[in-house]
């Protein structure tokens, strides 16, 4: 039992690390990740579950971080965009997004990555048409989506659903490798 307006302690695992923080019952998981844990990669775009920008993975399922209260995530295992790649590396999905220019302003990108991650874990092979529908809950206002489809299909071929980063140390450094093969 909580008291309205009073924060309670929430313990959970985020990207494999034990985390603890305080949350009012009304604090959403997305808000908790951002404001209490400082993980601002999860973005909030509508607070209605429509835009998909806040999508995170909870116990293996992609869910809307804005439609789940932090207290409901107590004891759960949460994955966010910050956990996709090992330090200094890039997850194959991230690399595929970079290669395909599957982002512009980048605001919807973390949510799209997490949705795509779960989609590829469900099955690595997607038809383009099925993927359109599978990703239709993540809105992007910049790209027109086709490069996103390109990226996710390429990442599937590269085994992105298996998890782990691609081990290419230094790939995260912005100025390196941008003139790479296309």
């Amino acid at each position: 039992m909580t008291v309205a307006g009073e924060p309670v302690r929430v313990r959970l695992s985020v990207n494999g690390r034990a985390e603890v923080g305080l949350a009012e019952p009304r604090t959403t998981l997305a808000e908790f990740l951002r404001e209490e844990l400082g993980l601002t990669g999860t973005h909030v775009g509508c607070e209605q579950g429509v835009c998909g920008a806040c999508t995170v993975v909870v116990d293996g399922a992609a869910v809307r971080g804005c439609l789940m209260f932090a207290v409901q995530a107590d004891g759960r295992a949460v994955e966010t965009v910050e956990g996709l790649a090992a330090e200094g590396g890039m997850h194959p999905l991230q690399r595929a997004f970079w290669d395909a220019q599957a982002l512009q302003c980048g605001f919807c990108t973390p949510g799209l990555l997490m949705t795509a991650l779960v989609a590829l874990r469900e099955r690595p092979e997607w038809t383009r048409e099925a993927l359109r529908e599978r990703l239709s809950g993540n809105l992007c206002r910049c790209t027109g989506y086709s490069t996103v489809l390109d990226a996710v299909l390429a990442a599937g071929r590269a085994g992105a659903g298996d998890g782990g980063d691609d081990g290419s140390a230094g790939a995260g450094a912005p100025a390196s490798g941008e003139a790479g093969p296309r």
Partner: peptide, 9 residues
């Protein structure tokens, strides 16, 4: 119904 991310909850 909605999208898989909604149906997950």
């Amino acid at each position: 119904i909605a999208h898989p991310e909604i149906r997950a909850r």
